[in-house]
């Protein structure tokens, strides 16, 4: 029994987009576990103010130049989700050669 995979992939992508666009703007703004530990234990200052890679188009998941934080985050989620599915798919295609 060979079932089609298209429907499953489509539904999964829709769910990912809902999470990335509609839910992510309301995620907790608190620092994550490592960041909080770094603050509490006094080594957050070791982190470079600006990363070594300076060309991130959407730093900190906020699309630049957008006034609304909600929209800036939603746009970041939308773009990021499409980029990951594309890159993941292409790498899969590249590796799984039959």
């Amino acid at each position: 029994m060979k079932k089609n995979i298209g429907g499953f992939v489509f539904i999964s992508l829709i769910i990912a987009l809902i999470l990335a666009i509609l839910i992510s703007p309301f995620a907790s703004p608190w620092p994550d576990g490592l960041e909080k530990v770094a603050e509490d234990k006094g080594f957050i200052k070791e982190a470079l103010e600006e990363g070594v890679w300076k060309y991130s188009p959407i730093p900190d998941y906020a699309f630049p130049g957008v006034g609304s934080e909600v929209i800036a985050t939603a746009l970041a989620g939308l773009i990021g989700t499409f980029i990951t599915i594309t890159i993941g798919w292409l790498i899969g295609k590249f590796i799984v050669v039959k």
Binding site: I5, G6, V9, S12, L13, I15, A16, L17, L19, A20, I23, S24, A27, S28, P29, W30, D32, Y61, T73, A76, G77, G80, T81, F82, T84, I85, T86, I87, G88, W89, L90, I91, G92, K93, V96, K98
Partner: peptide, 22 residues
């Protein structure tokens, strides 16, 4: 196999999206 290629893509996308939800 071939059927896994889209799954690699969509699983990556789902994990990216879910990682945004602190």
């Amino acid at each position: 196999g071939d059927k896994h290629i889209p799954l690699l893509g969509v699983t990556s996308a789902f994990i990216f999206a879910a990682q945004m939800l602190n």
